[in-house]
Write a protein that binds this DNA or RNA. Sequence first.
RNA 1: GGAGAGUUGCCGGAGCGGUUGAACGGGACGGUCUCGAAAACCGUUGUAUCCUUAUCGGGUACCCAGGGUUCGAAUCCCUGACUCUCCGCCA
Length: 419
Amino acid sequence: MIDIKYLRANPEVVRAAIKNKNEKADLDALLRVDNQRRSLQYSYDQLRAQQNTVSQQIAQKKRAQEDASEEIASMAKVAAQLKGIQADLNAANAEIETRLLSIPNIPEADVRIGPDETHNEVIRHEGEPATFDFEPKDHLAIAEQNGLLDLTRGAKISGSGFPIYKGAGARLERALINFMLEYHIQKHGYTELMVPLAVTRKTMTGTGQLPKLEADMYHIAEDDLFLIPTAEVPVTNIYADEVLSYKDLPQKYVAYTPCFRREAGSYGKDTRGLQRLHQFNKVEMVRFVEPENSAAALKEILHDAEDILQALGLHYRVVSLCTGDLSFASQKTFDLEVWAAGSKKYLEVSSVSNFGEFQARRANIRYKDAEGKMRHLHTLNGSGLATPRLMIALLETYQQADGRLKLPEALKPMLELRI
RNA sequence: GGAGAGUUGCCGGAGCGGUUGAACGGGACGGUCUCGAAAACCGUUGUAUCCUUAUCGGGUACCCAGGGUUCGAAUCCCUGACUCUCCGCCA
């Protein structure tokens, strides 16, 4: 959530951010209601002050057994007046809240301005693409030959986009999740959390998925709960409506969860095999930091995610997202795209973002700094990593001429696989 | 799913509808004392918003949330959320 005081002072900055992020929001209407609200609040406060004073006089008179009917009569009028103002004030506050929730975060100054992903900037490449002395197959062919997946039956029981991992495929998936969790816990110092997979509307609003993305969520109407699209949602919200101490910061959490995405309107776009799913597994890193440390923390999370790809010997590139491709809540994001050697393309396996105080404002997460001042902390997160496309890259990179796989050493301790 | 109890400030815990932002105790912070510490004593101890985004000072709101009654609500009424206990169901 944008600070309304900042918005009042810098409407043009916010207007530009909305435009550069391809969002829509009526700033003028918001500023107008904000003005109304403030003048209503002023009238309200004045009348209340009067009411409080006279009420005490009434109390005194009553105690002294004097007649206070005149005061009571005049206060009855004030009370009626207050009721009307209160109603207007509530309406104004509700409208401001609604409009404010639809204003995106402001991209950092060094984020390239561009309309869509074609304007993203590839910052660097790491590792070398695998080379073969045969024609490499794509992951579906490899999975089929080794019996790793059963997408047909997954679709039968739940619809397309709900994969079944089978036999060695299931074990590999489980090994990957465990490998990444342990890596972040042991080498990067994260604390693991296991969190609810269904969350409230308020929680979903706290991190910025709602109201914008409601159509992309699986919703349980009876309880008004949403299946999480990422562990970011429950993990970031663990401190909603709390005040931490600067001594508690920074905090680093890692969580594995399945993720659920309806992906409304994305049919037919890169959906082959495991590329785009309604349910997939992901290990997510989340950090709570003091504002002055969030830029450095962003780089650290990026490296934490990259470490996984490097440990698995995969070639990838780092992409800095332009404004048009930034998520609603993000102010700066790097994507990691892994090389799929058989499909011969880069696939996004991680998104690492700094949200500044945007989510902290929405979720009302504050902390007291060393001077005892109350401030909003900064939140960040990064996938570390999402498994489906990682699986694609692994299968395609480590395939051999006979169709069997020779998986990287790093996974050995997690699972003795012979496939 | 059924029955009951509860939700007050950093914590514990009071609070007849009218100087209650809230007794009392604890904690924390500052000070006195001390070579230093402990103890003792004194003082301070919230958030948001507005008046003026300096300071000082002041107004208003906040006792789970939202409504209602009243001149006036932490206190009365209604609805909801959550917590605890008992019963039922269940991995």
